[in-house]
Design a protein around this nucleic acid. Structure first.
Lengths: 228, 228
DNA sequence: AAAGAAAGTTTGACGACTCAAACATTAGCC
DNA sequence: GGCTAATGTTTGAGTCGTCAAACTTTCTTT
């Protein structure tokens, strides 16, 4: 496939588009450059190369958009990345705050047959340790509708389904407070003046800023004390 | 650490030295070039770079030798390679004939902490799926004294301990004849005129050329029907 | 020991990726 | 609406790893 560098650019462009609000948004060169840690000039050069290879559409001073081919490639990288993270956490017992960089390096070195074996070994997981969905072998990505914990009404039983901010610090904070994927929780109170929200995890209350709470996506649970 | 390319050169130089008969032999540029699949000119250039970094000693028209630092680096690559092969075969169930290329790519992408986790997960294996010893975390390599099956006297009970020729064809041939590591076998007869040797694996006789037999290293077993 | 073959080295060039810095375009503001 | 600030692009240059082809050294053979 494409070179390692190309894969990283595609991944970055995909991530920018994915986190963008509107539908047909174009990724900005500056953001791409920041994501792959390169000067804007380098990013421009590289984007032109991607355009030559029909992986992106680029219009001068306009912005960058993945083509269908580019998106397929990006999803393939994403699949490898997330399966590797799942493996590192579930099988090797690594901490979810330390697997990202590791996966970043490994994702470019897996053959398709190895990836298939790994997927089978892990039992075809649907989401990675952060709750991010894993594209299937044909590159389809099924996003589940989730809601930020900040928006939930107090008392309703919730399941922690996905963590958007994956900085090691935040993840370690969550870990220390038993906030893992699938943890049961509920909103206890919000203090708009202070900009904080307190949630209850098991018996323990945890207070976070509204911004932090926006990064925790949850799913309502039908009945509180059901084990699935 | 060093770049991927540098690691490959060091590994190649190490392997050449290891398979050489005499003690203080120097690797030939031509052989290094062949091993890393590059023209001799490229190998010369690269070896000079390695010398600049004090990883090898090189004298013009003379040959190449690893320094202590270079050997440490080579053993580190070897350790990664062999642990990965072990993982691929034992955990993911890949065939021992297909793991080499896979490990070749992965060995450059593992961090030390991941490697340590993998080693623990696998239970600190002493040898890889081909019977090659795995250097320990501090880079020590313990070679066990083994003898080629070609040299054993007929009838003595033997354990297949190591396979030197790791070409996929040969490995698949072994697989088809139940010749895995730890398989019990004995020499049945030799036919020097034809250049063949017949061994017995379980109930089945298998005939190989003397050259092929030289690639099977075995260990005598104390008592034939003991399970360890 | 001289010729020719084999092995190793040097040179000039290239592709991929990068930067710094000059330059161009677009957007935001008074 | 025109000026600055922000953003994007181009240019010239450098590093890494590679090749082909000219060249040098060493080995072999007679």
């Amino acid at each position: 496939m494409a070179t390692e560098t190309v894969e990283n650019y595609l991944k970055a462009i995909y991530a920018l588009r994915a986190s963008a609000p509107s539908e047909d948004s174009r990724a900005a060169i500056g953001d791409i450059a920041a994501a792959v840690r390169v000067t804007p000039g380098t990013a421009t050069t590289m984007v032109k190369r991607l355009a030559r290879e029909k992986l992106v559409k680029h219009q001068r001073y306009g912005g960058v958009q993945l083509t269908a081919k580019g998106e397929r490639a990006a999803l393939s990288v994403l699949r490898r990345h997330r399966l590797i993270e799942t493996f590192l956490v579930r099988t090797l017992g690594m901490d979810w705050s330390e697997v990202h960089d590791e996966a970043e390096k490994l994702e470019h070195a897996l053959s398709d047959v190895l990836l298939a074996k790994l997927d089978t070994f892990l039992g075809h997981p649907a989401v990675d340790p952060h709750g991010d969905p894993i594209p299937d072998a044909s590159g389809r990505l099924r996003e589940i509708a989730l809601v930020a914990v900040a928006r939930c009404r107090p008392g309703a039983p919730l399941r922690l389904a996905r963590v958007l901010d994956q900085s090691p610090d935040f993840l370690r904070f969550l870990e220390r407070n038993s906030l893992r994927i699938d943890a049961r929780l509920s909103v206890e109170s919000a203090e708009p003046g202070a900009g904080t929200i307190t949630i209850r995890v098991g018996a323990a209350p945890v207070t976070l800023s509204e911004q932090a709470a926006a990064n925790l996506l949850v799913e309502p649970i039908a009945r509180p004390r059901d084990s699935r």
